[in-house]
Design a protein around this nucleic acid. Structure first.
Lengths: 247, 247
DNA sequence: TCAAAAGTGTTCCTATTACACCCATGA
DNA sequence: TCATGGGTGTAATAGGAACACTTTTGA
């Protein structure tokens, strides 16, 4: 493997992404079991090429890890503490293991570059979990969808980044109507409600919830969905504006 | 003047600040008449030292330009388009005039550094305009408080940055109760209302506005303010939590 | 005909808006 | 005592929450 081309990336600037998915009535996040250290977990992230926009970098990283294009994503905060990386115990692990992993690719200069100070731009993404086929990045042992109630301790400030991303999602879910990006093309009202309940971790009353959502006038009602259950068949809905991308 | 010490700053990363003040019933922004180019205006900004946090950099820049510490400030967005600087007509002006301005301080390497690609973190700040004594930065011909209705065309994407900062202020004014940072220590209810009217560019009904603000339970009522006018003297109020800083 | 869950409707309560009224102030 | 603007109170309306009722489905 040839040397990592640090010269093509902006130094000291990175991006991490909180990739949200929704499955089995729970909100999940795609996190990575890291190749270095013991039981290390990280958020998927990457560097920014000198020739791409920061949003372009986010789109590229998302494409690499999920296989998807046209993902809804949004930057929510910058993490710029001067000691978020340098001086952190895990950084010593990286300094040690990176060259061992591939001495040619991560020579001393590259290792120093990667273990120096970084300002990190936090993005969050909303994906239809069924459409994603997670693909490992260079440093990923494996990628896992984990419920937001079951997030392990992660490396550096990644738990804080996730927390901030979730907070931002909660603030935006209602006003920007972005939640439908987490659902498949068609869905029942119950499913929308369960999604909202998963995100906000609280219950809603079905009748009021339905009225609120329908009053938004963003859904079109399709045919009924017969499940074989001995009860009234629910309607299927579809989001009117098909795919929502914000840039 | 000795050479500009680029080695002490993170390359390709900058911050610009929308400094809001409030005076004469209008919301104002502190902008800079730039030394380079013809009729060039910019937002106050700066670079980030390798040894300071991004918030630290913002605090430092604010201190330099306004003389104030303990300023309320908040990051609101990153501007990371790969062509926001490079390829922009004004960049040619900079390349030309920087060395002429001070060939020793801005040698070819420094000039190249400054006119390369930059990712910019947008902050906004709220200050008591009476307490500010604007001080020119190295590139400022002068600093001016300009009404948000009277902002000139600025350089690069600075008008867009300001627009985004104002949007963010509007979103946060209500829920975070940050508006009082724009007012002096004590103020009348009328003044608060006029501030809100200036920010949102719309009128409120006095009685309802008063009730809304008082119901927040964040103000303490002080003595009356006798102005000499032949009408009922309004109460003065003070924000309970004195100075609000968010980090 | 029955249980289960979907969908609709009704009532109640709170929050917001509009507007009327009273009060202090100094000429 | 009067005009002016500050402050308080009330009625009307809208929006949200709680809950009851009706409908559909397949056993």
């Amino acid at each position: 493997m040839k040397r990592f081309d640090i010269e093509n990336y902006i130094a000291q600037l990175s991006m991490d992404c909180v990739i949200f998915g929704y499955e089995e009535k729970t909100l999940k996040v795609l996190i990575s079991k890291f190749k270095f250290g013991e039981e290390s977990w990280v958020l998927p992230g990457g560097y920014i090429r000198k020739t791409e926009s920061i949003n372009g970098a986010a789109i590229r990283v998302l494409k690499e890890r999920t296989g998807l294009e046209n993902i809804y994503l949004e930057q929510f905060r910058v993490f710029g503490d001067d000691h978020r990386i340098v001086g952190h115990p895990f950084n010593a692990v990286m300094m040690d293991e990176l060259p061992k992993f591939d001495a040619e690719r991560f020579d001393p200069e590259v290792t120093a570059w990667m273990t120096g100070r970084f300002v990190c731009i936090g993005f969050y993404a909303l994906v239809d979990i069924q459409k994603v086929s997670p693909k490992n990045g260079e440093f990923d042992e494996r990628l896992e969808w984990r419920s937001i109630d079951d997030i392990p301790t992660m490396v550096y400030d990644h738990n804080e980044i996730l927390r901030n991303g979730l907070e931002s999602l909660r603030q935006n879910l209602d006003e920007k109507l972005i939640g439908f990006n987490l659902l498949p093309e068609t869905f029942t009202m119950k499913e929308v409600q369960e999604l909202y309940e998963a995100v906000y971790a609280k219950a809603f009353t079905a009748s009021n919830f339905q009225k609120k959502i329908l009053d938004l006038d963003v859904l079109e009602r399709l045919e009924k969905k017969f499940t074989g259950a001995q009860n009234k068949a629910p309607y299927l809905y579809r989001f009117k504006n098909s795919i929502q991308v914000n840039f």
